[in-house]
Write a protein that binds this DNA or RNA. Structure first.
Lengths: 242, 242
DNA sequence: AATAGAAGGATTGTATACAATTATACCGAT
DNA sequence: ATCGGTATAATTGTATACAATCCTTCTATT
């Protein structure tokens, strides 16, 4: 969550540490490692066939990404994410996606705009067919285009981090077909505001888009899907045990 | 003392790694290590009397904090910060400080409000006396109180990170006495809006406060102070060399 | 039976050794 | 003198060894 500056996208793609880092992150986001689960250095090292050193370094990065919490001399634990965290993130994202849309209105390239249109057009098709996986994919891509179009590495990276962070919860969120349709319509409106160079409108719409996404999430039972793990009280109770 | 509640409880206070981390960060922010300077693991290890291991782990954290960039198999370099980065950060901060003030309006405690009042009162005194160091200190503290008062670990952490990140640039910014006075007056207005439970006004004022701070920075020669290092073109040129 | 405490094992923290990669310097060919 | 290349040194990447800390369990005492 904290890496503001990935300008130099060198990102140790091929080092052991980098691979371990991405593997663990993947496993957390995919749910293989559940909340509050303890990650042991040797176990993961053996599983991946590496020593503790790269694992430890990956842990340090994961901690700053907010995915695990390291308690000195004790262990590394997958962080819980409370309902309040999710709400806070969506409030923050609402503002920042708005800013992003506003900035993108000036900076977007013809190519990016065309990809947006294509994206929306395709999403319409998949919405009609009820293809939920593709919808999720296109939704991700739409926002990524927007992030890139704002021409601010700072903002782009920040939003991508948030997006990633909240993926754990969001997974099943778009699976409601009517929301998928509505979401795509909002995308279209945002795109058209940008196309019309109406920055204020684009900002306002992107703003709303996030709030709507959050409201839908709550309405569709954010709590039920993830149960107690998103219940703050239970979370605190767990903390006291440690 | 270990704060389980803070998922971002980074850089444990007493481990070597934590001490090394904070020391290097301090040295970067204070200017001891300049932009683009290479940090060598052994050199720093010897200077601090520790082995490479904790130094390396500290590097991983510093990288995610955005303070250094690690190029695999090459080295760790203090990151440059462009004028555009600074501008982007202030635009982002403007929105988020506004959100923070809005949220704080509901959540602030009596104690926090009292510390704010004291802070502003004291700052008035030091502004009159021309005590710039104390002014900077009080300014930091005012914002920290606000961050804590919003009752969102997410937002608090994010804003503290941003604040820290721009510290390198901001250092001499408040040294203009008239800005110090104006800034403190803006603090007072924010505080009073919060006290009056006027969330919208608090948000708007905090918003403006950041924009004013940035404008003042630009007016007072952000570029001159840091010269070419804040010039994006030169920075890019440097990148190509690596 | 309940509890304090000690022993042992498990786990993380740090240091060091070795491997891989990159930078430097020297030398010869042109 | 300049350019290339090779050898050597410097530096980072990874593995392992050892130290410190924490957790579990069992025992002894009340």
């Amino acid at each position: 969550m904290t890496n503001y500056d990935n300008r130099f996208a060198t990102s140790d793609q091929y080092s052991l540490r980098g691979r371990v880092f991405r593997k663990i992150r993947e496993d957390i986001l995919s749910g293989k490692y559940k909340e509050h689960e303890e990650l042991k250095e040797v176990a993961i090292g053996e599983e991946l066939g590496v020593s503790r050193t790269p694992v430890r370094e990956a842990f340090r990065q994961l901690e700053l990404e907010g995915l695990i919490q390291i308690i000195p001399n004790k262990g590394a634990y997958v962080t819980g994410i409370t309902a309040k965290d999710v709400k806070d993130i969506y409030m923050i994202r609402s503002l920042l996606e708005g800013l992003c849309a506003r900035m993108a209105t000036d900076k977007i390239t013809k190519e990016q705009l065309e990809e947006m249109e294509e994206n929306i057009y395709l999403a319409q098709f998949h919405a009609d067919k009820g293809h939920m996986d593709q919808m999720a994919e296109l939704d991700n891509r739409f926002h990524d285009i927007l992030y890139e179009a704002c021409d601010s590495k700072m903002l782009e990276h920040l939003l991508k981090d948030f997006h990633q962070y909240v993926l754990r919860v969001r997974q099943k969120t778009l699976s409601n077909n009517s929301r998928g349709r509505a979401s795509n319509n909002e995308h279209r409106q945002i795109m058209e505001a940008i196309k019309a160079k109406d920055a204020a409108k684009a900002e306002e719409l992107a703003n709303r888009h996030m709030i709507n996404a959050y409201d839908n999430m709550v309405k569709n039972g954010l709590y039920e899907i993830y149960g107690d793990e998103l219940n703050e009280e239970d979370n605190n109770k767990w903390k006291e045990l440690k």
